[in-house]
Structure formats: C-alpha cells, structure tokens
Amino acid sequence: MAAVVPLGLYQTAVHQLFLLSCSLIPGMLLRHRDLALQREISSAADHLAYTRAVAREMHDLVAYSMSQAALRAQRAAADSTYPAEAQKEFSAIAAAAVDALHELRLVLGPLRRGQRFWPNSSLTHPDALGVDLETAVQAISDDLAASGFSVTFHSTGDSQCSRLQAATLSRVAREMGANILRHGTTYQPVTITLARRPEQVRLVMTNGVSVATSHNLPASGTGIQGMRERLAAIDGTLATLKEGDTWMASATVPLSPSSSTFPETP
C-alpha cells in the first residue's frame, strides 16, 4: 500500500530545497571565484619574484662588466703613451659605457625593488625624460661616423614633442643606429633625417646592407618588434623597407596640442 504524503508537507519540502539550493550555489560560486583569485594573486607574486630575481642578476652581471669596460677605457684615454686618436676613441668608449650603465640602472632599478614604471614609458622618472631629440639623434650620427660610416644628418622644422615622445624617439633612434652598426656596410652612405612638422615628427634612417657584412656584435633579433612596441605606446608607427642593398627605417609620431604634457604620477 503506497504511503500518502500530505500536499502541504511536500510543498514545504520543495520550498526548503529551493531555498537551500539558492544559498549553496552562490556560495559555491563565490568560493570558486575566491580560489581563482587566490591562484591569480599567487601567480602574479611568483612572476614578480622571478622578474625581480632576473633584474637583480642582469644588473649585477652586466653592471659589473660595463663598469670594468668604462674604467679600463677611462684609464686608456688618460694614458699619454697612446696616440691622440686612440685616446679619443677610448674616451668615446668610456662615455658610451657610462651612459649604458646609467640607463641599465634606470630600467632595472625599479624592477629590483618591485616598483612600477611610468605610464607608457620604459623610463622610471620624469627627470629622465628631459631629452633633446635633435641632440640625441646628432649623438647617434656622430657615433656612426666615428665607427667608419659616412653619415649625413638633416634636421628640419621646429615643432616640439612631449618629453615622453622625445624619449621614445631617442630610444628608437638608438636601435636604428645599432642595427646600422650590426648590419650596415661602410661602403654606402648613411642618411638620417629628423623632420619636425606641426602635425607629426618623423625620423628616417637609410643605409646600405650587405650579406658579406661581418661583425661580432650580439643581436637579439627583436629590435624591430621592440621599436614598434615603443612607438605604438605613444600612437606612433614604424615602417621598414629593403630595396636591393638599401635599408630604410622610418618612425612617425603624431603631434597634438596636449603633446607637451606629462602623465600624472600614478
């Protein structure tokens, strides 16, 4: 004989089960979300610890080597037994090593301390953004000329870009110059053009290339991508072109009325 369950009790049980499910399901979802957040936080902490460890190792190893290079070049530059031209070259090497060491510390220092960079910038302090773009590009032109290239540098216009734009373009110019040193041939001239128009700033470098060019300079293979990423952060673009044995790289950054401003401190 089948048991008879009063309808009222059945409805009450269903209602209680419904209420129980309404409380359990959100709780389970919240616990799942909490566990996911904890995993993300743990992963971010591990990534930060790894980044700081790599930055520490890079700083200690590279800073030591750059310091040794700078000191030895400075001593050689002050040694009167060397010819005057050799002393001049040693002095330039020492200056380049000191400059590289300074920038290495600017970039890696905050990473070692777990600090964040300034928005859209690879630099760490607004004072470091005080870059005169024409002077920076002229310095690269001089370095290339000292390395045996025949260089022509043209600078036109007088429109001013922001300190962040100038700093970014100076970094891009350095990478362009480094590519010329690595892959260029001294048998063809190098042209550098810096055009500062009211609506944009454009930096163009052209040089000859040769498959026979040999050097012992290390190359990461990511220079062009790095330049594109730097420029994209300030709404700029990079164009490259190879025709025959001529290579051209062109960086363009748009200017705006607010280009002279600097992002607020985060």
Rank of each mutant, 00 (worst) to 15 (best):
R174F: 03
R72H: 13
M227C: 07
D99H: 03
A195W: 04
L17R: 11
Q115W: 11
H47E: 13
N120I: 04
S141I: 03
R31F: 12
D132T: 03
A49R: 13
A167H: 02
T124Q: 05
E134G: 04
R56S: 12
L164M: 10
L133Q: 01
V131W: 01
N179P: 04
D143C: 07
T51F: 00
A166G: 00
M1Y: 08
W118H: 07
A96K: 04
R39Q: 14
R31K: 08
Q16M: 09
M66R: 11
Y64A: 15
P126K: 01
A178M: 07
V4N: 01
L181D: 02
A212V: 06
T213M: 13
R31D: 05
H125R: 10
Q11P: 00
L108M: 09
D143Q: 14
L17I: 06
D235H: 15
A251K: 02
S220F: 06
D79R: 05
P257C: 03
A233F: 04
F153L: 15
D132H: 06
I93L: 14
Q11S: 08
R72N: 10
T51I: 07
V107E: 02
L255N: 03
H15S: 13
H154P: 00
I41V: 13
L61H: 07
A84S: 13
T81V: 08
R56K: 11
L7I: 09
E264M: 04
R163Q: 13
V5Y: 09
H59C: 03
G236N: 01
G221Q: 06
T51M: 12
E85I: 05
A36M: 10
M176F: 15
F117N: 02
S43C: 11
N120T: 08
E89R: 12
L29F: 11
Q138C: 04
I180N: 02
E57C: 10
C161V: 08
V107S: 01
I25F: 13
V172L: 00
S250M: 13
S43L: 15
G236Y: 02
S65V: 08
P6H: 11
R228E: 15
A239H: 14
A251F: 01
E264L: 10
T135N: 04
L133F: 00
D99P: 00
A178H: 08
F90H: 14
D99M: 04
A63G: 15
D79S: 09
D127S: 11
L71C: 06
R56I: 01
M227I: 05
A233W: 01
S170P: 02
V4C: 03
E40L: 15
A233G: 04
A239V: 10
L19A: 12
K88V: 06
G109Y: 03
E134W: 02
E89P: 01
S220I: 04
T261H: 06
A251E: 00
Q115R: 11
N216P: 00
G157K: 09
E134V: 06
G226E: 04
A195T: 07
G236M: 03
A53T: 11
A178C: 05
I93Y: 07
